[in-house]
Design a protein around this nucleic acid. Structure first.
Lengths: 140, 140
DNA sequence: ACATGTTGTTGCACAGTACAACGTCGGGCG
DNA sequence: CGCCCGACGTTGTACTGTGCAACAACATGT
């Protein structure tokens, strides 16, 4: 197996292992926000409001799943939905203040944890790693 | 926010997004092997046989979860368990021939898919990306 | 105006997971 | 040696996340 192939194998394996651990770590990091709900809130926030269909396609989730998650988040008062004035079928999702606060806290927790594990990396390596991941993710 | 911090943010976000999509993609790639069972088989294979406790700690799973997954894999004839001669409590898990075959096929599917998305990366970048991921994963 | 497609909701079923209680075995300490 | 504690795995129970299918409401093009 060539060097390139074995590198690709490593990438595959490491990313898979990461995925397998992610749920557990997310629940450790911010117990009141699951990996899914965190991701959804985060996307809504970054996009400045978005529709359920966007969330579904971005995370490759069924729309029914998103519908329920959104319902749960709304019940918790973390987001609001407004019917899209331009399209009465759709609705626009936005985090509430409470949602934003929770999101910020969770992000802070995550950042602490991530920062800690990069202590022995120098800046250039961190930057390059981020670039590679972004490049990889962009094609997802 | 410093460049380093924003890089760490990117890493965080990309890894999380990846994790959210992983299950779906795994089921696309090899429908008869879930992300979990694939990972477990793969670990057993790479370690040349291992105990359930190893799997649990490696993937941060509860031992009951592992026990059930292993049970399922055994029922499918993909692995065998032998009681550890050195410690009658434990058991050593090994993929069967059928398990190895399935694993090889799945790995091939994955490799194709991964290879495809790295077509426009040059060798050095792929190698460095792999190194970074391995380094990251080692601290997990 | 009607057929077709898009957006979200609901009913149903199932996989994956955790936690707790338990049986079994191994190892250290009196 | 005999006991107790700890490690390994299994089973019962409950919950979350997920997908698929059927549906309702709205939009769009002909």
């Amino acid at each position: 197996m060539s060097g390139r192939e074995s590198s690709i194998d490593t990438i595959q394996r490491e990313l898979t292992a990461f995925a397998r651990r992610a749920r557990h770590k997310a629940s450790q990091l911010h117990p009141d926000l699951s990996l899914v709900t965190y991701s959804i809130l985060d996307l809504m926030n970054e996009r400045g409001g978005c529709r359920a269909a966007d969330v579904a396609s971005y995370f490759m989730l069924d729309k029914s799943t998103v519908s329920r998650q959104v319902g749960a988040l709304e019940k918790l008062g973390l987001l609001v939905r407004e019917t899209d004035p331009d399209d009465q079928r759709g609705q626009i999702l936005r985090p509430t203040e409470a949602g934003l606060t929770l999101l910020r806290e969770a992000a802070e927790q995550r950042r602490l944890s991530f920062t800690e594990r990069f202590t022995d990396w120098d800046d250039e390596d961190v930057a390059r790693f981020a670039d590679y991941l972004a490049r990889y993710g962009a094609a997802d």
